[in-house]
Design a protein around this nucleic acid. Structure first.
Length: 682
DNA sequence: AATTATCCTGCCAAGTTTT
DNA sequence: AAAACTTGGCAGGATAATT
């Protein structure tokens, strides 16, 4: 009888494959369960991955919600870190941001990046890294550091360095490191630093020996690429090795071109990172309001085929276009504020009538009729429902050019989301077609340049493009929405929660609840609000001022709601006088001017650097300067607001003789929350 | 069930910045 | 100076929480 043997097998490629798959999922937003907002950029990711790679996130995710804002790190830095987390590689990072990268890695608890200082100190010609960038003791054997020690490049592990020249790669069991000269001529795009408009990924086959400049150029993220235009600096490729054998020393050249190991016999598929992260507010992205994901542009396409939409549901299981277009009576989950979610019932009907199943995106190449940098894409029915879901990268990889058009097959609607946050999606352009205008890299125009409360004319997207640098700035700053144009009407879609807005100003205001770019602290307590109006209403509760006077009984009320309730219950009338003539004369109330609070035109706190991460009720994490937030705001203190008008306490109270019943404590307020001290002068 | 508090969003006016 | 843009207040409906 044959003896029984115990067989063991190890899949040496599993970890790499797994990581690659995870990265692909990230690029398409698949299963992403956290949105990280850094400056004006949004990064979708998986909590598990981040928490496994970063001690900071590990701790943070135990309490944080699904939307997190990091104020202590630059977007381009975080992008590199995120790319590393999902690829184990650092690709062509400019040397002048290395120190910041390392420090950010230390802050986030990403070991490999945190300890980059040491191996980088082996590279000649690098700008000196500060001492704190080179961790103490990392030169000792990594073997003694226990789990995770592989993330600490150890001096002793260096196999090759500086051999025969300054450009040889450093290859150890734990990592490989290479550097090359940064050249402006490499084709880096002069674009906005935070451009997210690079739409298409590229599949690049590197030269047999190392990586060409062009490859690296393609790999370079936009934001990184944009920084070095005036100060040519080095690009560093640093890649954590899975196995040393994967390392392929790159040719030594006069340009210090060294490439970290590439996968054998593999091409490099690179999605511009800005696209990967920012352009993927994938369906399912949870808003701070815990709404069901609705009205995503992705779902726009899916909805076109009622009979197949179930099968084509976005991978995140988001709701369909129904939730965008349907009236609230439909069984589709809707937001808590349905009235704002439905551009028009007619629009929905238009979509339902088409019954489009799958879409083929035909990108019209730039031509004379188009503005530079602008791709026009048409979606047409291609009727195939069997394609794999591999995200935007694959979709883009399937693009081909026929008849002067760039045809891109989108496997699922989510890929529309993945295209760009600056996209304009034109629905109902023609039968069974949509137009998408995608500002691509270096595209001077974009959809966000439009503002002004929707007061501007609803011009075509191409007409809105503006090449002035100033517009660029605005665009980058406010990359927060898609624009959906249906039946000639434009709707602004929040990229985070997919809410739709008729007025861009409304969206801007709303988006701050995601980004917390501006914070509105109460002057009387330590509460912080995302909307100025909320803060104002809250502060009025502190002051107790009652501005709403019922004209029937002359009672004063603290807000419209209380007044309205009073009028309806006591007088059985609507305060607006709706039952009577629709004019101001019929109003049953009078609104007195605000005495207790002066107008504060720009009374917000914008992104205090650093600070304490605060998690609000919605799970949003934001950072508040401890010097401001911790102690609260006592009456009489200077307001935190950056408003130009400094409100003094004397200004708040009505002086005797004014005749206004302006300021007094609301009976319900008491003094439990706010100690109301009436100045002697009052 | 009624009341209260809070949120939401279109609209608007006023202030600021840009052209 | 005019236009464009930003900010914040208001109305009034909706929803959640509390009584």
């Amino acid at each position: 009888m044959a003896s029984i043997k115990l067989i063991s097998a190890a899949d040496s490629q599993y970890s790499g494959t797994l990581l690659k798959a995870l990265n692909e999922q990230r690029s398409t937003g698949l299963f992403c369960d956290v949105t990280i907002i850094v400056q004006d950029r949004k990064f979708r990711a998986h909590k598990n991955i981040l928490s496994s790679s970063s001690t900071y996130f590990h701790q943070l995710f135990s309490v944080a919600g699904q939307v997190i804002e990091l104020n202590f790190i630059k977007a381009e830095i975080f992008e590199e870190i995120l790319n590393y987390i999902y690829s184990s590689k650092i690709i062509r990072v400019r040397s002048d941001i290395l120190e910041e990268l390392i420090k950010s890695g230390q802050t986030l608890g990403v070991k490999f990046i945190a300890n980059l200082g040491l191996p980088l100190s082996q590279v000649k010609g690098l700008p000196g890294l500060s001492k704190d960038s080179v961790p103490d003791g990392v030169g000792s054997s990594s073997a003694s550091k226990g789990p995770g020690s592989q993330n600490i490049p150890a001096k002793n592990d260096l196999i090759t360095q500086e051999a025969g020249g300054e450009a040889m790669p450093i290859i150890t069991e734990a990592f490989s490191l290479s550097s090359e000269e940064f050249k402006q001529s490499e084709g880096f795009v002069d674009d906005d630093s935070d451009s997210d408009d690079v739409i298409f990924c590229s599949e690049i086959t590197p030269p047999k020996s190392g990586v060409s400049s062009s490859t690296a150029t393609q790999c370079q993220s936009n934001s990184t690429a944009t920084q070095g235009q005036t100060n040519p600096s080095e690009i560093i490729d640093l890649e954590e090795e899975e196995t040393a054998e994967n390392s392929q020393p790159a040719p030594v050249s006069s340009s210090r071109l060294i490439q970290g190991s590439c996968e054998k016999n593999s091409s490099v598929v690179t999605i511009p990172s800005s696209e990967q992260e920012e352009a993927n507010p994938a369906p399912g992205t949870s808003s701070s309001h815990n709404q069901p994901d609705s009205s995503s542009l992705a779902s726009l396409l899916e909805h076109e085929s009622p009979d197949t939409s179930m099968n084509l549901a976005s991978p995140t299981g988001s709701s369909s276009w129904d939730s965008f277009c349907s009236p609230p009576s439909t069984p589709v989950p809707v937001t808590s504020s349905p009235t704002g979610m439905y551009p028009s019932t007619k629009a929905k009907e238009n979509h339902e009538a088409r019954g489009v199943q799958k879409k083929q995106v035909i990108a019209l190449l730039e031509n004379a009729a188009s503005k530079p940098g602008e791709f026009k894409i048409k979606l047409s029915d291609i009727g195939s429902a069997s394609r794999s879901i591999n995200g935007a990268a694959e979709a883009k990889g399937s693009e081909n050019i026929t008849g002067g058009k760039k045809i891109i097959t989108l496997d699922k609607g989510a890929e529309i989301d993945a295209l760009s946050t600056g996209c304009k999606v034109y629905a109902n352009i023609g039968e069974n077609t949509y137009d998408i205008v995608i500002p691509v890299k270096d595209d001077p125009g974009e959809g966000d340049s439009q503002s002004g409360g929707g007061k501007k004319s609803r011009m075509a997207a191409s007409d809105e493009l503006d090449t002035s640098p100033s517009r660029k700035k605005i665009r980058v700053k406010h990359d927060d929405h898609y624009e959906l144009i249906m039946d000639g009407r434009i709707f602004y879609i929040c990229i985070v929660c997919k809410r739709s807005y008729v007025c861009l100003t409304s969206l801007r205001r709303h988006f701050n609840t995601h980004s917390w770019e501006r914070k509105y602290p109460c002057r009387y307590c330590d509460k912080v609000f995302a909307l100025a109006e909320y803060r104002t209403k809250h502060e009025i509760h502190h002051t107790g001022e009652r501005r709403y006077q019922c004209l029937l009984c002359e009672e004063y009320f603290i807000n419209y709601q209380v007044l309205s309730s009073h009028c309806k219950s006591v007088h059985n009338q609507d305060p607006s006088g709706k039952k009577e003539k629709d004019d101001n004369e019929s109003k049953l109330y009078r609104l007195l001017p605000c005495k207790s609070l002066q107008l504060r035109p720009y009374s917000y706190v914008s992104n205090p650097s650093g600070g304490i991460p605060i998690i609000n009720e919605d799970g949003l994490v934001y950072h508040v300067d401890p010097s401001k937030a911790g102690s609260g705001f006592s009456p009489g203190s200077q307001p935190l607001a950056t408003g130009k008008q400094v409100v003094h306490w004397d200004d708040i109270f009505v002086h005797p003789g004014s005749g206004q019943p302006a300021t007094y404590v609301h009976p319900s307020e008491g003094t439990s929350e706010f100690e109301f001290v009436i100045p002697e002068s009052y």
